[in-house]
Design a protein around this nucleic acid. Structure first.
Lengths: 205, 205
DNA sequence: GCCGGCCTAACAAGCGTTCGTTAGACTAGA
DNA sequence: TCTAGTCTAACGAACGCTTGTTAGGCCGGC
């Protein structure tokens, strides 16, 4: 309990510092100082600096997959799924901003197996967006496009939010998400010139 | 001459390493090793590690502003300017990939005045995109949108290319740029459903 | 013979991590 | 109720190593 709490405090302080200064530029003593501890004292709760990074990256990955994954696997129309995913993704990025930034940018300082694991979860997550876009294309909801590229574009854009979002800014996460979703969905929409004969046009290969 | 060349070699090696491992995780000895030198020997050509980072960030900033800036300030229609800017930006990102990545991600390890200078050039560059989008909106070429957000989205997407682009991949920079431009311009386009009446619709695309 | 370019050697500072120790709180037994 | 034992959380010093940087000397080409 008290141990658990302390551990969380350490992870939170580390998460903030890793985001502010980067993993390599943050020392164990920096983290300890935020909690008014000595450097060595952290090792009662943590087995190494890298394991700390690993924990933070994992809990961020959990949130992304947990919040966004199910929305992508529902059987709603692709455009609807996509909009919901975008909203959820922006939700994670803004509410767990520090963790998200660590997951997105600092994971590469992990080594070996741990690094591969996070890379794998990243890939799986990206594949989720690719799949929904591909679904929309084959169902005729979206204009033909290279899902690989549009998904990368979308995720780069969404992840950029973690860089510039400020909780005290004048835009709520949902406002941002909706505007982004509008832009993306318009980018993917089939040109209205010759409107599709409405719904269940699943037959396009 | 020989000095200039050596200096360039050092900058290039440093640029590659800063991109691969990050500035803080790259040691002066690492850089020297790439050129079969001893760590201390670099200091005949370089006054500090940070000055090296500064040089690399500057030359990247020069390329972005030099290649893209003029295109944004021409008096062509906004959509045309934007497409050209995107192509040029992707050109820089792919042809000076390492420098660009350093400019985009490692500049924050600069301190004091130098850091502010690069941040300023970044802001100016972003403002260029915002301005073109705003132009397009007021001229009726683009649907009403928040230029701040659409510009951030665009730049996040374009800069993400620096992360995943591989010169030996199966997409040329121009192909990537065109696909991205298509997506962006469709996202910004005024809905064709009820076309604007007047405004001398200068042909888009 | 000078001088640019590189070497080796050293420097102080800081790194992640370990370890013996301690202060305080809790618990059990007499 | 005292006391002995145990547990926890942290200290603070030290370890071996790496960091950025400096200094002095050697060598080859003008």
């Amino acid at each position: 309990m008290a141990v658990e709490t302390r551990r969380r405090q350490i992870e939170d302080a580390a998460s903030a510092l890793f985001r502010e200064r980067g993993y390599a530029a943050t020392s164990v003593r920096d983290i300890a100082q935020r909690l008014n501890l000595q450097g060595g004292s952290l090792y009662a709760h943590v087995s190494s600096k890298e394991e700390l990074l690993w924990s933070i990256a994992c809990r961020a990955a959990d949130r992304f997959h947990g919040d966004v994954g199910p929305l992508g696997r529902s059987d709603a129309p692709a455009s609807q799924r996509l909009r919901r995913m975008i909203r959820a993704h922006v939700g994670v990025v803004t509410s767990a901003q520090r963790d998200a930034a660590v997951f997105l940018h600092e994971w590469r300082y992990l080594s070996g197996e741990r690094r591969q694991m996070i890379a794998g979860r990243r890939d799986t997550y990206e594949a989720l967006f690719r799949a929904v876009i591909a679904d929309g294309v084959t169902s005729g909801e979206f204009a033909p496009t290279e899902p690989r590229m549009s998904a990368m574009l979308m995720l780069s854009g969404l992840n950029g939010i973690a860089t510039w979002y400020r909780p005290d800014g004048d835009l709520t996460p949902d406002q941002i998400a909706d505007q982004y979703a509008d832009l993306f969905l318009r980018a993917l929409a089939v040109p209205a010139a010759m409107p599709e004969p409405h719904f269940t046009t699943r037959t396009i290969t």
